[in-house]
């Protein structure tokens, strides 16, 4: 999931010009889980803005619970058909969702002015209803086979691939003494699994061309093509 956190209302208010008519859009998936843009927060945002004198022409959170704002065809239908009257009057859209959702609203409205209502902070695991944690950096070249599934690009502050730096203190990271050293976590996990030999091999530098932006994925039921500065890589899911 894409973790998001609402921007402070004071920052959002600075985005909106005097007299600007605003339509508020939330997301029924990730932003709902983050309490940054679900139905409750989207309704509340409309009210908070109205209270502060902003002309809010409407609000919605497309789809049932679990539906992502970033599913373009559905968001387009909701904004252009279901809410056509309000969205036609809107000068801009305040999006309570991740950066992908913001772009989806641009596409769904054929290029309307948008305002980000949230900061998109990371892709994470919903550990509990109140705790979302980051375990993957979306680097495009997964190395976690040899680390017992724990990502050094994410759990190590320096993204080291061949073991820890010398900075950890009693198993805690030099950057944040409250947080365990990612490499100590990897080591302890593999030790318990009896698979420490996985750490012996030299790990080459990452291919950062695969971490280039923007990237694209072309998908079909039978194969997918990952497009990045490293080129186009097609993989079958059938053979």
């Amino acid at each position: 999931m894409h973790a998001t956190i609402q921007k402070p209302i004071t920052e959002i208010l600075r985005f909106i010009r005097p007299g600007e008519k605003v339509f508020v859009v939330g997301c029924n998936n990730c932003a709902w889980k983050c309490h940054s843009g679900g139905p409750d927060e989207t309704k509340a945002m409309a009210e908070r803005l109205t209270r502060r004198g902003v002309d809010v022409v409407g609000y919605t959170v497309p789809g049932p619970q679990g539906m992502s704002l970033c599913k373009l065809d559905h968001t387009r239908k909701v904004l252009q058909q279901d809410y056509a009257e309000q969205t036609r009057r809107a000068d801009s859209f305040l999006v309570l969702g991740c950066g992908q959702g913001v772009h989806t609203v641009i596409d769904a409205t054929d290029g309307a002015m948008v305002h980000p209502g949230c900061d998109t902070i990371f892709g994470g695991e919903t550990v509990s209803e109140s705790d979302i944690q980051e375990f993957c950096s979306l680097c495009g070249e997964c190395v976690i086979e040899y680390t017992g599934g724990l990502c050094p690009m994410t759990l190590c502050s320096k993204q080291l691939l061949n073991g820890p730096c010398g900075g950890a203190e009693k198993g805690m990271c030099e950057v944040d003494p409250e947080r365990p050293c990612g490499w100590v976590l990897i080591y302890e996990r593999l030790r318990k699994l009896g698979r420490l030999e996985l750490l012996d091999a030299y790990q080459p530098p990452k291919d950062h061309a695969k971490w280039s932006r923007p990237r694209r994925l072309e998908v079909s039921p039978f194969e997918a093509t990952f497009c990045s500065q490293a080129g186009r890589v097609t993989v079958s899911n059938q053979d």
Binding site: Q159, L161, Y202, P204, P205
Partner: peptide, 12 residues
């Protein structure tokens, strides 16, 4: 922070 390489990769 850069950390394009780690120290092992740098030595190599």
């Amino acid at each position: 922070p850069v950390f394009d390489l780690d120290s092992v990769q740098l030595i190599r």
